[in-house]
Design a protein around this nucleic acid. Structure first.
Lengths: 168, 168
DNA sequence: GTATTTGCAAAAGCTTTGCTGCAAC
DNA sequence: GTTGCAGCAAAGCTTTTGCAAATAC
């Protein structure tokens, strides 16, 4: 089990509402509330977490509406779906798409999520598209392992047993 | 829905049985059969597919044993778990770990899976580890989009509707 | 009036688990 | 005789779906 699943959104995120409505898509009040919730979230939300938060704005929101709105935003390419290395089960997490591609590091020890971007990732993306004649819609790079603090702890307790990689 | 989910394993894979047993882990006949099935698979298998194939070797194998063996190999870092962009549902696919890291491109059109490796991926991995003080156990890069054939088809039918990204 | 959205509850899919009995060493 | 593995079935979780009622244009 994971003690924390914190995250800091380091990269400028697109503005969902403007983007959606500029496409001529009309939104209901509930969907707008959901979108605002995603936009203003400070951690990576899964569907249940999004529902809970969105209900603070509109208590009538239903789980099905959450999933249908996520589907909409995903299809528009405005949010990205993450697994975060299944650190805490099979759920999916969502984040607003950022202009710069970034990747996620998930610590198997403390559950911390680290976001990281580098020009090397951007150029790798270009290379992938070019060398495979592939039109990239979504790219997801996730890393699992141990942050420096947890790596140190593991080093100390190395005599106990080896369980190197809780979840693949 | 996806018409094909083919794959070619382009990269040399580690030998599971040797590796496991050289760690002093004793294997039952069923687990050995499962491991051999994974080793010799020619496509990315999910748990159900692995079960079906393994039963050709030993019809008595049970689903629970499949999941428990997968768990074992995952924890040993000898197989990697893939989502293949959820092209065909939420199941997981497994592949023997390769010496060289490679990534997977999943075509939303035809379901084809393309494997690709490049030195740029290796050096990105080094950079990620170094810049974040992170001990990497697993790295997974998945790309979703359209292969050149499907991209061309989409171009032609572009007037119909836009559904750019079926699954995130 | 037609089309879309919602709520509800049930179903679906994949994965995990408890427990009993069995097998290995 | 311990220790661990297998089989079975049930439960667990997230996500999807069918359909009737409600809402929007």
């Amino acid at each position: 089990m994971v003690s924390q699943l914190e995250a800091f959104f380091l990269f400028p995120r697109f503005e969902l509402l403007n983007q959606v409505e500029s496409k001529g898509i009309r939104l209901t009040a509930q969907r707008r509330a959901l979108i605002e919730t995603i936009q203003e979230a400070t951690t990576h939300l899964d569907a249940a977490g999004l529902l809970k938060l969105a209900r603070e704005r509109d208590p009538g929101i239903n789980r099905a509406t959450v999933y249908r709105t996520i589907e909409l935003l995903k299809n528009l390419g405005m949010i990205d779906e993450l697994d975060l290395m299944h650190l805490d089960g099979e759920k999916h997490y969502y984040e607003v798409r950022t202009e710069q591609n970034h990747l996620h590091l998930a610590c198997f020890g403390c559950g911390k999520i680290i976001e990281f971007a580098t020009p090397a990732f951007e150029s790798l993306k270009q290379e992938i598209a070019a060398k495979n004649d592939f039109e990239i819609q979504v790219i997801r790079l996730e890393v699992g392992g141990y942050c420096i603090a947890c790596a140190a702890k593991r080093e100390k307790h190395l005599h106990e047993q080896h369980k190197p990689c809780p979840r693949g």
